[in-house]
């Protein structure tokens, strides 16, 4: 019989099975990051942003397909509402949807997807900004929390920095992880 190289058949879904499994692993990690808040408000604020930024960019790089971030955002919103009970009030779970849409749009501006360090860092900075604005927005508008402007400004600037650091580290780790996994 002749030599034959058989290509993968067309996938039924946009993501193939391996990508779905990897998305699930990332989603599990993202859901697990909620536990970072156990370390307290101050440490939590720093570490959480870094880890989440890192995971989002790593996922985008490792899976490397458009809509990775958006998919994670949608799945996470559902998971937070249904499964984790969204500890801090179910409405805030929608943060994960809105910020994912923003980050998805930014990452799509680089080719390949999430392929530019600058865009990744900028993207996570905006991601952090949106995350916090939506979160605070829900707390202020819906829950009626009153906060002074200086505190709001502080609460918004911190995640911009920490998420951006996460994006930077995610860019480095993402490429390393991708190489390690592809050679396994």
């Amino acid at each position: 019989m002749d030599d034959q190289t058989v290509d993968r058949p067309k996938n039924k879904f946009y993501f193939n099975n391996r990508e779905i499994v990897m998305l699930a692993a990332f989603l599990a990690l993202l859901l697990a990051t909620n536990l970072i808040w156990i370390t307290g408000y101050v440490v939590g604020n720093v570490i959480y942003g870094i880890v989440e930024g890192l995971l989002m960019i790593t996922a985008a790089i490792v899976i490397g397909k458009k809509y990775t971030v958006l998919t994670l955002g949608v799945a996470r919103t559902i998971a937070e509402i249904l499964i984790a009970g969204a500890f801090v009030g179910s409405l805030t779970a929608f943060t994960f949807l809105i910020n994912a849409i923003v980050l998805e749009a930014i990452l799509q501006s680089s080719k390949p997807y999430a392929g530019s360090l600058k865009i990744n860092v900028a993207g996570t900075a905006v991601y952090g900004l949106v995350t916090r604005i939506v979160f605070i927005g829900i707390s202020v508008v819906f829950y009626g929390m009153v906060l002074p402007t200086w505190l709001l400004a502080f609460m918004i600037i911190v995640p911009v920095i920490t998420f951006a650091i996460g994006g930077f580290l995610g860019d480095r780790i993402g490429n390393r992880v991708k190489n390690a996994i592809s050679s396994m």
Partner: peptide
């Protein structure tokens, strides 16, 4: 009527959480 792959993705992530910890 969520797409099946999205449902599987969420199911698996629930299953992965203990393993992740």
């Amino acid at each position: 009527r969520f797409p099946e792959w999205m449902i599987l993705l969420i199911t698996m992530s629930i299953r992965f959480i203990p393993l992740t910890f």
